Amino acid sequence: MTGDHRTNLIQIGLGPWGTDWATKILPRLPDAHVTGWVDASPDARTAFVAATGADPGTVFATVEEALEATGAVAAIAPVAIGAHVAVARQVLQAGAHLLLEKPFALDAATARELADLAAERGLVFGIDQNYRIFPGVPIVRELLERGAVGTIRRVSLEWHRIHQGVRDSNALIELAIHHFDLMRHLFGREGVAITCVPVTPVRSAQDRTPGASLIVELDGGITIDYVLSSQGVDAQTPWPGVWRISGDDGLLRWGAAPDDHRAVSITDGDGNVTPVEVPELPLFERAGVLRAFIDAVAGTGAPTSPAADNARSVAMLEAALTSARTGERTRVERW
């Protein structure tokens, strides 16, 4: 959809990532009308005004002040991971719709609590799982749904990029949450259990690790060998990773190094490779997520990843963090 309505919203979080949203994503959707900008840090507010030219009179220190002054009905929140839960509670309790960064919580219980709060108040609550908005995703999902490779026997996923934001953080929290969500979305199955061996010890969610090797079990006997790496010399994969899905009737490949997220092909039992056309999407990645959120607020669509559904991706992250800490296969919480 192109959107023929206008939605007044505020943006919470004016650091480097918030500035990126404000300058690169929001201008692509003219009907996403930002009436206020929010950050608790005076330094962040000052730097944001300098970087974007925002009217200082539209920049606020608190969510409540911004909502009251602007009359906005919704908020987007590109804030630091540690602030996700607190910001979600603030916005939802204030009665505004919310698009929040991932992961919106680090445990399934908190994720469900926040999703229930939004549901009780009749609010749209979407999560920016933007890997769902890559051009190859609907193609691969459709191929799997129609059994293009037959019964699935083996799946592997490799992600490798020398990326400081991943290497210097907890890669499971910063990046693997994207892939857990993508696994659920592509296969239409829920997580069963995860075994995780981190590159460096992870005793708590605050510990850093640049990568991990994981075995991810999904419903229906699907097991995914998943390697997440931000160290060492290798060709750079696309952000969604390089996927190999082997079945009785063929091999589906999606993604190729270096950095080709549109490469999709099917190899049959005789070794014949057939490339699959991957059309462009009207709006890509975060812009597509924002488009769906704005339409949902207007009552003409739904978020690409509603919080109530995304809580199950959070449950997979929680299991991975527990396994990383204990060294044991950990079951994913189900409800």
Rank of each mutant, 00 (worst) to 15 (best):
residue 226 Y to L: 04
residue 76 I to P: 02
residue 136 G to A: 13
residue 193 A to V: 07
residue 129 Q to W: 08
residue 11 Q to C: 08
residue 272 N to Y: 11
residue 207 D to R: 04
residue 38 V to R: 01
residue 148 A to R: 05
residue 169 S to K: 11
residue 93 Q to H: 11
residue 53 G to D: 14
residue 196 C to H: 00
residue 131 Y to C: 06
residue 212 A to S: 12
residue 80 A to K: 13
residue 283 L to G: 02
residue 149 V to W: 00
residue 146 R to G: 06
residue 65 E to C: 13
residue 257 A to R: 04
residue 252 L to Q: 12
residue 104 F to K: 02
residue 138 P to S: 12
residue 41 S to G: 06
residue 61 A to P: 06
residue 152 I to S: 03
residue 213 S to F: 11
residue 257 A to V: 03
residue 61 A to F: 08
residue 46 T to A: 15
residue 194 I to D: 03
residue 204 S to A: 06
residue 306 P to F: 09
residue 159 W to E: 05
residue 200 T to L: 13
residue 229 S to D: 15
residue 251 L to D: 00
residue 102 K to S: 07
residue 28 R to G: 11
residue 304 T to L: 08
residue 59 V to N: 06
residue 176 A to L: 09
residue 253 R to C: 14
residue 135 P to R: 12
residue 24 K to I: 03
residue 302 A to M: 13
residue 252 L to P: 00
residue 9 L to Q: 05
residue 85 V to Y: 06
residue 149 V to M: 01
residue 142 E to S: 15
residue 37 W to S: 06
residue 205 A to D: 14
residue 300 T to Y: 08
residue 172 L to V: 08
residue 57 G to C: 12
residue 181 D to V: 05
residue 290 L to S: 01
residue 184 R to E: 09
residue 101 E to H: 15
residue 11 Q to I: 08
residue 85 V to M: 05
residue 123 L to M: 05
residue 301 G to M: 05
residue 62 T to S: 13
residue 123 L to G: 03
residue 243 W to F: 10
residue 217 E to M: 00
residue 139 I to R: 10
residue 178 H to Y: 05
